[in-house]
């Protein structure tokens, strides 16, 4: 079997998902044996920018026109395109707080230079707003075991397989004390996709939802519970809005 050709790319974000790949210290030298990595500019200055790729792994959100142009080029040269990390999958931190006017925000932070930005979107947008995405590896950052598992799937020609249930389930399996019920913490593990083995609540720290929403996440139920514990609706929405992405109004599920 010939090695699959792979490209790894970064748009607007922190480069943490690409760094996680470099953090596979025990596996890295094997990975470069198993895969024909053609283009990975963060690690390699020898680039092949045009050949057809079996798989493209793309991290980061689309903010600038440059981001969009790179993404479209990558899509066009790839058989399978996988969004890696929260920014690529859901818009992540660059896409949070949609209520904040980015024009003003950019001006506040970057001054007059903000006028020169060539933006492709009002704020950080997921790849799927622009091109067809064939699979995601969630997380901020992605988890090492999920990345390596995804590579194993991709070697078989399959997209990554994800857990559909929430972090809450993993947390229960680990027999952790429930931060939400027992400590009244603003923990959103009940609506967040599993796969991290309940990393944060196992340390006694509330889940911030960095893996995005689980399938069938019941946002209204969590919100009602948190309101009954005294949290303001705005604070709940702010927390969910960083990574978990409340459904936008047009897409909100109908009440039963």
């Amino acid at each position: 079997m010939s090695k699959p050709t792979v490209g790894i790319f970064g748009l607007t974000g922190c480069a943490g998902d690409q760094l996680l790949i470099l953090n596979c210290e025990d596996e890295l030298l094997d990975l470069v044996e198993l895969l024909d990595i053609r283009d990975f500019v963060m690690a390699n200055s020898a680039r092949d920018e045009h050949s057809q790729l079996d798989v493209a792994l793309v991290e980061g959100a689309v903010v600038t026109e440059r981001d969009e142009a790179i993404l479209r080029h990558v899509r066009q040269r790839s058989n399978m395109l996988i969004a890696i990390g929260a920014c690529a999958a859901t818009g992540g931190i660059p896409g949070m707080a949609p209520e904040i006017d980015r024009k003003q925000a950019f001006h506040d932070v970057y001054g007059d230079a903000a006028a020169n930005f060539e933006l492709a979107a009002d704020r950080g947008r997921p790849l799927s707003d622009f091109v067809q995405v064939d699979g995601i590896i969630p997380g901020c950052p992605i988890e090492k075991h999920e990345f390596l598992g995804a590579i194993a799937s991709l070697l078989q020609g399959n997209p990554p397989r994800l857990k559909e249930y929430p972090v809450c389930t993993e947390c229960r399996i680990r027999e952790n004390r429930c931060l939400l019920i027992s400590d009244d913490a603003l923990c959103i593990g009940s609506v967040t996709r599993a796969g991290c083995n309940a990393r944060c609540p196992s340390l006694g720290v509330a889940c911030i939802g960095c893996r995005g929403p689980s399938v069938d996440a019941n946002f209204p139920s969590l919100e009602a519970l948190l309101v009954s514990k005294g949290y303001a609706v705005k604070d709940i929405h702010d927390k969910l809005g960083v990574f978990a992405r409340l459904p936008e109004p047009a897409e909100a599920p109908c009440a039963d």
Partner: peptide
């Protein structure tokens, strides 16, 4: 070429713990 994120502006109004 890094796209702008304006992190300092989009956290305004949030509680210290976040």
């Amino acid at each position: 070429f890094e796209g702008p994120r304006a992190l300092e502006a989009i956290i305004r109004g949030r509680p210290a713990r976040d």
